[in-house]
């Protein structure tokens, strides 16, 4: 029984780990929707692997730019333009 509690506690802690992620500036769905027609807005879908393929939500017009290739694709986009990174 003790082992069972240890095991359950481990998975409970593991499932709460995403909550510990650091603060990053975010944009709400409504805000993004209202700016979708903006010509200077660039949406980059930085998800890769199953994070991208298993998801039903893929923003139309978003450019796929896998996170692990950041050093490659980050050079191609003007830094003055608003870049929206879609990661989850």
């Amino acid at each position: 029984m003790k082992k069972l509690f240890v095991l359950l506690a481990f998975f409970l802690v593991a499932s709460a780990l995403p909550a510990l992620a650091g603060d990053v500036p975010t944009m709400s769905i409504e805000e993004l929707k209202s700016r979708l027609d903006s010509p200077d807005l660039i949406i980059l879908d930085v998800r890769s692997g199953r994070d991208w393929s298993a998801s039903e939500f893929k923003i139309q017009g978003a450019i796929r730019a896998p996170g692990e290739q950041l050093a490659v694709w980050s050079k191609h986009y003007p830094k003055d333009n608003p870049l929206v990174l879609y990661c989850a």
Binding site: F11, A14, S15, P18, D51, A54, S55, E56
Partner: peptide, 24 residues
Amino acid sequence: AGYTFNEVFLYWFPNFGFSFLLLG
């Protein structure tokens, strides 16, 4: 399954969290 739960049923529940919970 984590993504499905998050995107179909509960937006606020982390997909990764659901995957770990199911594994547990």
